[in-house]
Nucleic acid binder design. Structure first.
Length: 228
DNA sequence: TAAAATCTAGTTGTTACCTCA
DNA sequence: CGTGAGGTAACAACTAGATTT
């Protein structure tokens, strides 16, 4: 499954798993919502009357420094930084190239983005966490599907086993595959008393029930002439 | 071996959207 | 129809503890 980026702030995960479509034509609803949110909160110019600081986007490193001083010493609550679209895009591009940054790269990116290296570092940490969470969710979904199909298969096999047990015939018809017996007739249902496996001919089973492909393949694997 | 740097996992606080009375 | 409260999701920033250099 591939999650297509709608804009720079979206997760860019390309995880291939059996059972999942390799691509989707539409992004998940959640992504659309994120996109809308971004469009609104990042790009809209604050109208008169709206608190300007509510729309504060990515203050400069100097401003951040100033703010952190206030926060460290004073009582002013921390303000949530909103990265600009360009900043997010550049960070996403960097993340695509490398999921971790060395100190030089971090410094350079921070300079370019007019952010503090610490902010870049935090962004990458959070981005890795989101990436991992997304992957875990997808793996979880995949395992759920596996569980479902295996459960179904298990039930089917159980039913077939019961059917086979039901057609288990009188002891006179039971012949061990371990004994050296003359060739079986096509109407004989046999069961090995040692390994408890039915080793009948297809013709006999077909007369009694309608075996599925699974049964047929089991029979193929366990012919009377073969040792258990 | 100690210390600094960096990581992960979990949490907190802010912001914006949605629903509903 | 407009509005305010409550719920929720996203995400930047933080903390603690583990790991690496």
């Amino acid at each position: 499954m591939a999650v297509f980026p709608i804009n720079s702030s979206n997760l860019d995960l390309s995880i291939s798993m059996p059972g999942f479509a390799s691509s989707s034509t539409r992004p998940p609803l959640m992504k659309v919502r994120i996109c809308v949110v971004r469009e609104l909160d990042m790009n809209r110019v604050p109208t008169t009357g709206e608190a300007e600081e509510e729309w504060a986007v990515a203050p400069s490193a100097e401003e951040e420094e100033e703010e952190s001083c206030i926060n460290n010493g004073g009582t002013k609550p921390r303000k949530k930084l909103r990265l600009s679209t360009d900043q997010s895009r550049l960070l996403e591009e960097s993340f695509r190239l490398n999921h971790t940054l060395n100190p030089k790269q971090k410094e350079a990116l921070a300079m370019e983005l007019k952010l503090k290296p610490r902010q870049v570092e935090v962004w990458f940490q959070n981005r890795r966490a989101r990436s991992k969470l997304k992957q875990t969710e997808m793996e979880c979904e995949y395992l759920k599907r596996c569980f479902g199909s295996l459960t179904e298969q298990n039930h089917r096999l159980q039913r077939e086993l019961e059917e086979l047990r039901a057609i288990k015939v009188a002891p006179s018809a039971i012949v061990s595959c371990h004994d050296r017996q003359p060739p079986l007739s096509t109407s004989t249902i046999t069961m090995c008393p040692r390994c408890e496996r039915i080793t009948s001919s297809k013709a006999a089973i077909a007369a009694a029930t309608k075996p599925s492909k699974v049964v047929t393949s089991i029979l193929k694997l366990h012919q009377p002439s073969q040792a258990c």
